[in-house]
Nucleic acid binder design. Structure first.
Length: 966
RNA sequence: GGGCGAUUAGCUCAGCCGGUUAGAGCGCCUGUUUUACACACAGGAUGUCGGGGGUUCGAAUCCCUCAUCGCCCACCA
């Protein structure tokens, strides 16, 4: 059996995936080689969180990165796609803690730091394996030998060194800050890890008596009455006539009896809101905190880490915050100080992780200084802004540069400490009792140890690149390591250079930094991209990448964000199993336009009996169960897909079958040169289009226009190569004389298609490449050359300008137009399928010459007995007529023409023409148009007018012949 | 509240540095087992380009405004 006959009629994606991925990996195509003499092209993967598996958003992002990497690899670059995963601090700890609680009813405090961390590692191993497996299934050509994890030793080393350098240069400092405290997890959470919910509560109004006055008092309203225990002032607007005389006096804080000042503060107080008086609790409210700083108010912390109140709450000490609220309200009421209680809906912040209300909480934290230096030299934020404004770093689409610059413009210090156990431990050791002499004695000659006085307490803070033993200062002093870990973004921010081995001066670092492109989602432009720029410039003295590509966000069909728990999430593996990896990739690449959001209508997968596809757990095989049983399942067990991927499935199949056709017709292929005169018009035409398709593809990839790339290649493959070229050459392939040249062109075009389509559809192209290699190992024009062993490493095509052939394109366009018109006539006039037609094409000049050259092709493509091309012809009464811009088509159809119906059709065509003519005529009658529009536009309209008038005249004369009026 | 973006065929989207008759895929209708492909082929229908106003010889495209939707940021005593 020939190779072609062994190929199934339908492309089998699973077979190709199973075959070629190991093939590529075994041959080491994905491995970068810093020793190779080729320019570098590098992408670091945005490391997915090990929290869970990848979804369609990741699939989109990684498809695009793989397209770029495969393209550049083919262009001859030494490509490195650096893979890895992110430990994702709080997110991962939270899922593991949650599981610990639901399965064993234990908190992390029950099992301790070491045990929890080891459980998280186990989780990490499981999900890392799944994530990397998903990427492999998608066909991602990462250099797996370099896979990194943000918490591995290589990354840890970079974290240590960076922290040390920052500390040494005074870029890291310790400070008090109001953090969002999660009392259940006992940790601070980031602003973006808070979910606000509209919650029904109350607004309580409390009376604060003015000290030394029997009658006067101020009324303040609050949604959190318990915090009044920590009030250190009452603020009014400085211009408020009702209260301004009280500024500088004091009021007596109810329940505790402290005297607190009345202050004027125009920023905090809106005199029109509520009573116009605001209680100020600097330690427990962000605005009040700022107010406290402005007015030098004391900060009274009321909270213990577990959510109970501390000794500052006086009689309420030891009670949970919720209990304190109840008692404070009851006590105020009992003392007649509660003015009123109103129902009130406000937004309460809940921790994303524990789903409990967040408490603003004053605590010691570590910060990286973002602001400019006191001497005015630019700080980290400014440096990162400069990278973009100077053009060293480009963000695509450009509009996202604005969010980057706006956010950095605030130059807010970056809080890098987290009260967690999963992460890089802060490399600071505190010694409360020692003197600087002790430190000098112990570490004096060590360049990797640096200390500074603890400004917030007594003793010294010692930063070290390597762990310090508790007794490193001798038996009389204790060194205690800071219990906190670093914000997960601290290690992510180092990713582009830590993964290359920094601070070691590795060959990789020298060659691959700065990397080429970063592709990511817009919601982490600030959290991640900006910080990579900051640390890249700090450690490496250069931006971490030259281009940042921001892809769109995938939503479901209703515009809702996809998520597994909402039941609208789509697992790329489900798509791959249903449609194939190439289908997934092609559809995603086709969808990658410059939009912000991308809708992906989602539907359940069912079998032909209407049963619902489910998976017991992600990664498990699909089982189908009756619909009514599926109702009660958790949504994350349902398998979703989207019709959008149908398009991605049909295209590889179309290409596959075009290849089968080619292979079947390459029997007896012999490599050899093709002389220009051996090329038929259609050969010159397809080569001209192939050249343009390749040039366009290159341009689009350069500009990250993935959708245009996918569409352009699809159109060329399907609408030009399959629909026309293959049809054109069928006859020549049957003729022994013309067969060899036709085969050589066919092999060349198929070879080019494999290359051009490979970045987007690696699997089907490799299948075709290998099969093609079986019959035509040497191919290409004008001289054949031996093809490489894999399309993965074949050269990206760039064809000579001499292939550009406007004459051939003109000819083919002429043929195509006439074929389309004749097919339309056949269909519209109900010409029997097997009837041989005898059309006459009336044309003059260049058009006539082109049609004469193509007569035999037109004949076979429209099922004609003969095709006549003539400068003029009589129109038989029983014939259908179509009038085109440069030709008239006469189709004699004895016995098939109903003059009335024919007239009606012509009349409709005439009506359309007249509408267009009317538009153009009125335009040309308009003096301002003729005067003001550019000359070529006016000329264009005149030409068009002449064409349409000629067509109109022909129609009118035909109608007269048929006996119809004009 | 500030910002970004969207609104074009039944659906998902191109087009938008103004200029022939606004396109694609899917879906729909009619026909076809034409020896690569029914995941196909041939033909066809479908749009006051969200509403209103303006600029211009000319607006889907530029400006203003309103409406609806989405996202980001800030914030709600």
């Amino acid at each position: 059996m020939s190779i072609a006959e062994q190929l199934p009629k339908q492309y089998d994606p699973q077979d190709a995936q199973a075959r070629w991925y190991p093939f590529w990996v075994d041959r080491g195509y994905f491995q970068a080689d810093p020793g190779r003499d080729a320019p570098p092209y590098t992408i670091v993967i945005p490391p997915p969180n090990v929290t869970g598996a990848l979804h369609l958003g990741h699939a989109l992002n990684n498809t695009l990165q793989d397209v770029l990497i495969r393209w550049r690899r083919m262009q001859g670059y030494d490509t490195l796609w650096m893979p890895g995963t992110d430990h994702a601090g709080i997110a991962t700890q939270a899922v593991v803690e949650k599981r610990l609680f639901t399965e064993e009813h234990k908190t992390r405090h029950d099992i301790g730091r070491e045990a929890l961390v080891s459980r998280i590692w186990a989780w990490k191993h499981e999900y890392e394996a799944r994530i990397l497996g998903q990427l492999r299934l998608m066909g991602c050509s990462c250099d797996w030998s370099r896979t990194r994890f943000t918490l591995d030793d290589i990354c840890a080393r970079a974290v240590r060194t960076t922290f040390f350098r920052l500390f040494q240069e005074g870029k890291i400092f310790r400070g008090k800050r109001l953090v969002n405290w999660d009392t259940q997890l006992r940790t601070a959470v980031a602003d973006d890890e808070i979910e606000y919910k509209e919650t029904d509560g109350h607004l309580w109004t409390i009376r604060y008596p003015v000290t030394g006055s029997d009658s006067e008092s101020l009324h303040v309203s609050t949604t959190r009455p318990e915090t009044m225990l920590g009030d250190t002032a009452v603020a009014v607007h400085p211009d408020d006539e009702r209260y301004k005389h009280l500024i500088g006096k004091t009021v007596t804080l109810p329940l505790l009896g402290r005297e607190i000042p009345v202050i004027g503060d125009a920023i905090l107080v809106d005199p029109k809101f509520g009573t116009g008086c605001v209680k100020v609790t600097p330690a427990h409210d962000p605005n009040d905190y700022q107010t406290g700083l402005r007015n030098h108010l004391p900060q009274i912390n009321l909270l213990n880490p577990d959510g109970t109140y501390n000794e500052n709450a006086g009689p309420y000490a030891g009670l949970d915050r919720r209990e304190v609220r109840k008692r404070v309200v009851a006590d105020l009421e009992a003392q007649g100080l509660l003015v009123k209680t109103e129902p009130y809906t406000n937004r309460v912040g809940y921790s994303d992780r524990s789903k409990t209300p967040i408490e603003p909480y004053l605590s010691d934290q570590w910060f990286v200084r973002m602001a400019d230096d006191p001497d005015g030299s630019p700080g980290f934020a400014q440096q990162a802004m400069d990278a973009v404004t100077s053009g060293r770093l480009k963000i695509h689409p450009e509009r996202y540069a604005k969010s980057y610059l706006d956010w950095l413009g605030e130059k807010r210090d970056w809080c890098i400490s987290r009260q967690l156990w999963w992460g890089h431990r802060i490399p600071i050791w505190h010694c409360a009792t020692c003197s600087e002499a002790d430190l000098k004695h112990a570490f004096g000659d060590r360049p990797d140890v640096f200390w500074s006085p603890d400004e917030s307490g007594s003793g010294w803070l010692v930063c070290s690149e390597t762990d310090l033993a508790p007794d490193a200062l001798g038996p009389s002093h204790t060194l205690e390591q800071d219990p906190d870990v670093l914000d997960t973004w601290f290690s992510s921010a180092l990713w582009p250079h830590s993964t290359l081995g920094w601070p070691e001066q590795t060959p990789e670092l020298a060659k691959y930094y700065p990397t080429s492109v970063l592709s990511t989602a817009r919601d982490i432009i600030t959290l991640w991209v900006a910080r990579m720029v900051i640390f890249g410039q700090f450690n490496m003295g250069d931006v971490p990448f030259k281009d940042v590509y921001i892809h769109s966000v995938i939503q479901d069909g209703d515009g809702k964000r996809m998520s597994k728990s909402l039941g609208n999430g789509v697992d790329p593996v489900d798509i791959i199993e249903t449609y194939g990896a190439d289908a997934l990739r092609f559809t995603l690449a086709s969808s990658a336009t410059e939009t912000q959001d991308l809708r992906m209508p989602v539907e359940r997968v069912t079998d032909d009996q209407g049963r619902i596809a489910t998976r017991k757990a992600p990664g498990q095989p699909i089982t189908f169960i009756p619909a009514d049983e599926a109702k009660d399942l958790p949504k994350e067990q349902l398998v979703n897909t989207s019709k959008k991927f149908e398009e991605g499935r049909t295209f590889p199949n179309k290409f596959w079958n075009a290849a089968r056709f080619a292979l079947m017709n390459l029997e007896g292929y012999t490599p050899g040169p093709v002389r220009p005169e051996e090329l038929a018009v259609e050969d010159r035409w397809i080569l001209s289009l192939l050249r343009r398709a390749a040039a366009d593809a290159t341009t689009q990839l350069d500009a990250f226009r993935f959708a245009d790339l996918a569409k352009g290649l699809r159109d060329f493959t399907w609408n030009e190569f399959c629909d026309w070229y293959v049809e054109f050459i069928k006859a020549r392939l049957r003729d022994e004389g013309t067969r060899p040249a036709a085969q050589r062109v066919l092999a060349t075009v198929l070879d080019g298609l494999c290359r051009l389509l490979h970045p987007v559809m690696p699997f089907v192209t490799e299948s075709v490449w290998q099969a093609l290699g079986g019959v035509a190992k040497a191919r290409g024009l004008p001289e054949p050359a031996e093809a490489s062993e894999s399309v993965c490493i074949a050269a990206w095509p760039s064809y000579p300008d001499s292939w550009d052939d406007p004459e051939a394109e003109y000819d083919i366009a002429q043929w195509q137009e006439k074929v389309a018109a004749l097919r339309n006539l056949r269909a519209e006039r109900d010409v029997p399928k097997n009837a041989k037609i005898e059309p006459i094409l009336v044309a003059q000049g260049r058009a006539a010459e082109a049609l004469a050259r193509g007569a035999s092709y037109i004949q076979s493509l429209v099922g004609a007995g003969s095709v006549t091309v003539a400068p003029s012809a009589d129109r038989p009464g029983e014939s259908a007529v179509t009038v085109l811009a440069d030709a008239e088509i006469i189709l004699p159809l004895a016995g098939l023409i109903d003059p009335k119906a024919e007239l009606a059709k012509l009349s409709k065509a005439k009506g359309d023409l007249e509408k267009q003519l009317g538009g153009i005529r009125s335009k040309l009658r308009n003096a301002s148009f003729v005067e003001r529009a550019p000359a070529e536009v006016v000329e264009q309209q005149r030409t068009r007018l002449a064409e349409l008038e000629a067509q109109h005249a022909a129609l009118v004369s035909r109608m007269a012949e048929l006996g119809g009026g004009s």
